[in-house]
Amino acid sequence: MKYFPFVALLFLFVSCNGDKKAEKIDFKAQNEEEISKYITDNKLVAQRSDSGLYYIIDDTGTGAQPSAASNVTVAYKGYFLDGSVFDESDAQGISFGLQQVINGWTEGIPYFKVGGNGLLLVPAHLGYGSFDKRGIPGGSVLIFEVKLLSVNN
């Protein structure tokens, strides 16, 4: 009986700790509102795909057009809705397979041909989801200025 308070306290701690587990939250409706407001506030004209990706093509480009399975080289700048930059390549860009990146890029980069550029407005479900990842808070809308430099295969 002398261990009862300890066991009860331990049970309470474990129970409360279990409540603090990260829950997957669906940010689709919130992100849709945030993106719509961003587009309106910045007087942008964007297209919306069935998945919820918004994209703006400033220049379609004239070269090869990648597929979702292509390896590409892209120069980009990624930032949040408040304009703070979280990642940026140099002018030579980076190369990667479109199956190795967030779904927003897998879907969005093929809208461009080589030499093309524009914006991808990526809701969380096509980005990093509802969990914090590499300094990006869960549920974040991500904006990418992209320029497709080459299709490598």
Rank of each mutant, 00 (worst) to 15 (best):
S36C: 10
I94R: 14
Y111N: 15
T73S: 15
Y55T: 00
L120M: 05
F4Y: 11
L126A: 05
N152T: 12
G18Q: 09
F86P: 08
S36P: 07
G108Y: 01
L149Y: 04
E32F: 05
I35F: 02
I102Q: 14
P5M: 13
D82M: 04
D58G: 15
Y38D: 00
L119M: 09
V101I: 12
P123R: 01
A69T: 09
D50R: 07
F4P: 08
Y76T: 02
L9M: 15
S36I: 08
G52H: 01
F144D: 00
T62M: 13
T40F: 08
G63R: 07
A8Y: 09
E107C: 05
G116I: 08
S89D: 01
L53V: 00
L12Y: 10
I102K: 14
R134Q: 10
F6D: 13
L44T: 04
L142K: 03
T62W: 07
L120A: 04
S15C: 10
F131S: 13
W105S: 05
K37Y: 05
S140C: 04
M1N: 10
A91I: 08
R48H: 07
Y55H: 06
I56G: 03
Q30E: 14
Y55G: 02
K28P: 04
V14Q: 12
L98D: 03
K20V: 07
S15W: 08
Q92E: 15
A91V: 10
Q65M: 12
F112Y: 12
I143G: 06
S130I: 00
Y3H: 11
D132N: 04
K147Y: 05
T60Q: 15
D59N: 14
I136P: 00
